[in-house]
Simulated assay, not measured.
Amino acid sequence: MPANPTPLNAPTAEDFRAWHRVQCAALAHDRPGEPVPSQAALTARLTTAGAGSRMVLWLVRGPGEEAVATATLRLFEDPGRSHLAEVDVTVHPAHRRLGTGSRLLSTLTEAAAGAGCRSMVAEVMAGTPGEGFLATREFVPVLRLTWQLLTLEEVPDRIRKLPDVAHHGYRLAFWEGEVPGHLADSFARAHASMADMPTGDMDTGELDWDPERVRQAARVVAARGERLLTVAALSEADHSVAGFTELVLPADRSPRAQQYGTAVLPVHRGHGLGLWVKSEMLRRVRDHFPSITHIQTDNADDNRHMLAVNTALGFRPLRRTVEYQLRLAEG
């Protein structure tokens, strides 16, 4: 039987190699055909938490010291989200249904409650035993997501031409990394406008987007060795950000990039800016980053507008996942 789960307070290089082996085995079993992250990329993500959060890690080994499971607990530190936690438990396929996942989840639940959290979220593949595993432990499904994949060679011709279509009163801008200083305030406001995107019944807390917050988010991406690209539509009336889209290029030379946020301020909606900025991003990736062949994204099933935009761009369904939430006892 595996040892009792204990946090990795000072993970070693061998711990990260073992972690990578568990992840590779699980991905190959659960999502065959999809690329697996390199060990360097995985280590960077485990050691560089997202902006306004910190990570606690668990690595479970069996009697022969082989790694059999991993777990992460992400604790948020922003005032409006300090009551939230995200968990991820992965058990090696050869060691499932032996109680390891249950013990790990119980350990993480206790750790989250001990940190003062009132709500804990976990994501699982739709239609898999993971749903039943969480449901029998009082987790409730709160958000269904559709993951989509775009093959850049298959972008429709009409989309390829969209960046050249004039949008009266707006112009396109591009930058890599941190937002330019003169756009920081309006870019933060554009990020804040994502607060009205559909999130089902999930408790997402409140996030205060300001210029320092958007810069911090860009620094996290850079610290992982990844590259953050942004295309924005600027209002010609006041030169502010009216809408934007972000894309992250992998650090490990993987051909698959990850779509990050896309938003248009309410006052500027209805002009096709979302499709415009995203089509310009696709053109830039094709022209300047030829090693990228695919782009992955995910959206809430309730976000029909963005799903329609992605379908028009050429994205196709890849997989579906479900966010489950557990309400922890009040402290």
Score class of each variant (00 low, 15 high):
P180Q: 08
L59D: 02
C24R: 14
N299H: 09
T230L: 04
A113G: 11
V285I: 09
H305D: 03
H168E: 15
W209C: 01
A300G: 13
V36D: 01
A115D: 12
G331Q: 11
V87S: 10
A13F: 05
D252F: 09
A112F: 08
V322C: 07
F133H: 09
V220R: 15
P180C: 04
R160A: 12
V214P: 00
D298C: 12
R256V: 14
H83G: 14
P317T: 06
D252S: 05
A190Q: 02
V179E: 04
H271M: 04
E226K: 12
P156W: 04
P2N: 13
L104A: 08
E246V: 13
A113T: 05
A188I: 02
V214R: 01
R227C: 07
G225F: 06
A18N: 07
A122S: 15
V220K: 12
Q259S: 09
T230Y: 06
L228T: 02
A190C: 15
M55I: 10
T6V: 14
R284H: 11
A173V: 03
E131F: 08
P11S: 07
F289K: 00
A122I: 01
V285P: 02
G52C: 10
A308M: 06
S106C: 05
G50R: 14
S279H: 11
D185W: 00
A192Q: 15
V231Y: 04
A44N: 07
N299R: 06
V56M: 00
P79L: 10
L105W: 03
D30S: 09
A135C: 04
E330L: 13
Q148P: 00
D88V: 01
L75W: 10
L247S: 09
T43Y: 05
L42D: 09
A122V: 12
H271V: 05
D302S: 12
R61K: 09
K161C: 02
A94Y: 01
A190K: 01
A300I: 06
V267L: 09
A308F: 05
T136D: 03
R219P: 02
L313S: 03
F315L: 02
T297R: 08
M194E: 14
Y260K: 13
D196A: 14
G243N: 06
A41C: 11
A263M: 01
P250R: 01
V322H: 03
G52F: 14
E131D: 13
A49E: 01
A217L: 08
M120F: 02
C117W: 00
A111W: 10
L249N: 03
V214G: 00
T107M: 00
L150Q: 03
W147T: 03
V267A: 13
V309Q: 05
D157S: 15
L98M: 15
E65V: 00
V285M: 07
V165M: 07
T204C: 13
H92D: 13
Y260W: 15
E236M: 15
R17D: 11
W209P: 01
Q39Y: 00
R316H: 07
K161Q: 14
A135M: 08
S235T: 08
A237R: 14
V36K: 10
P255C: 12
P290Y: 05
